[in-house]
Amino acid sequence: MYGIRHLHLRNPGSWSPFEELERLQASLERGGVALGGASAGPAIDVWNEGDGLRLRALVPGVKPEDLEITVEGDALTIRGTTAVAGPQSGDRWLLRERASAKFARTLQLPFAVEADAVKARVANGVLEMELPRSAAEKPRRIPIQTT
């Protein structure tokens, strides 16, 4: 027999029998959007930073040209295609966990962002974005008139 067999390495003290169910529930609550066979999309972190938001999404193997990001007000949509290079003709699958699929995910942001000032870059399979708050939504000081 030639080849390799894979092991699951797991910290024995950290496993919960409900772990998988909780992960599935979290995935559903995440608000993934399935479009025409698309999967729910990448794992995403979003947090407040300064005057706007920072985002990172895990997109291993996705090339920048295969990503499409759109912003409309407070709705951010990330679409992409995971191209999985697999076996050539005559080769044989031994384990297949990665999926070659289109994905789309829409996030409702806590405020509208300045679409023209949004920055995005991909490095080592991680999409990083800076989403500055729209000027129209920034807190304004109201001058008080004296009579």
Partner: peptide, 9 residues
């Protein structure tokens, strides 16, 4: 645990 593809060529 990272998702993996394994194939024999």
């Amino acid at each position: 645990t990272p998702a993996c593809d394994v194939w024999e060529g």
